[in-house]
Computed example of a mutant assay.
Amino acid sequence: MSVSTVTTIATFSDNDLVQHLAELGALLQACVHNGASVGFVMPFGVDESEAFWRGKVLPSLRAGGLMLFVARQGDAIAGTVQLDYDTMPNQRHRAEVRKLLVHPAFRRQGIARALMTELERHAHALQRSLLTLDTRTGDHAEPLYTALGYRTAGVIPGYARDPHHQAFDATTIMYKTPGG
């Protein structure tokens, strides 16, 4: 996989997702195999990965309550993040950050930060003043979120099974309001 220095961020439609399903599936599979705690456990095959995009993400994109941001370097999909703003009437001021994924071959290049910046720009345009997310406690993403102005609301022990081991990891619930 060649690495370019120019990263572009696109907002994917449902048709874009279908067109790039294999690439998105490969991205998710690579992240899970590299230890990402994003809801899946080993063994985790490409069929399961593509089924996630088809069965969970695609319907939400079509329904209009989710935005999918995709980072590219050259022709390669380097990362993605989702903005879930399908909320109840009393929660139209908030949205949830979901599944920040950066392919292991493209890490440490500012891609996660670029994806989050684009997501936050769109959240602001949607008048979503509170963003929430959860991340495995102690994971590599936690300092990134803190640097972006997210604050810790709390930690839930034993929240999710580790993707590679028969152990349960804690999750850190984080939020961001206007001005960080």
Rank of each mutant, 00 (worst) to 15 (best):
F106A: 14
L126M: 11
G149E: 06
G158L: 09
T8S: 08
G35C: 07
Y145G: 04
Q127A: 15
R107P: 08
F44S: 13
F69C: 02
L68W: 01
A112M: 05
E142F: 03
G65R: 05
L58S: 12
L100E: 08
R128T: 06
D14S: 14
T172R: 01
L83Y: 12
G35D: 03
I156W: 00
T7K: 12
T5N: 14
G149F: 00
H20K: 07
G65P: 02
A114D: 05
G179Y: 08
I9L: 02
L101T: 14
G74Q: 12
M174Q: 05
N90C: 06
Q73V: 08
T137I: 02
T5C: 11
A78R: 04
A125Y: 08
S37R: 04
E118Y: 01
A63F: 02
L100P: 08
A30D: 11
Q29M: 15
P163N: 01
L144K: 03
S60L: 10
A71I: 02
I111V: 15
C31P: 01
P178D: 11
M42V: 10
G55C: 09
V81I: 11
P104S: 13
Q82S: 04
M67Y: 01
D139N: 03
V18Y: 00
D84H: 09
L58Q: 12
E23N: 11
N34M: 07
G79R: 04
A147M: 09
L66F: 00
F12H: 10
R151N: 11
L100M: 15
D84N: 14
E96S: 12
A95Q: 03
R108Q: 13
K99H: 13
E48G: 12
Y85N: 09
M174A: 06
L119V: 05
Y85I: 09
R161H: 07
A167R: 09
Q82W: 05
M116E: 01
F40C: 05
L126C: 10
T7L: 10
Y145K: 03
Y150H: 07
G110R: 07
A36G: 07
Q127R: 12
L17V: 08
V41Q: 15
A167S: 11
A10M: 08
Y85A: 09
R128K: 09
L66C: 11
L61P: 02
N15G: 13
P157V: 07
D14N: 10
R92C: 03
L27Y: 08
A30F: 00
M1T: 15
R94M: 12
A141M: 02
E142S: 01
A30W: 00
G64R: 00
D134W: 03
L66I: 13
A95F: 04
K176P: 03
P157K: 15
P43H: 13
L68N: 01
L131A: 04
T87E: 10
D169K: 00
P143G: 03
K99T: 13
G55K: 12
K56L: 13
E118S: 01
A105S: 10
H122P: 00
A26M: 10
V70Q: 05
Q19K: 09
Q29F: 15
R98L: 14
R161M: 07
M1F: 11
T171C: 14
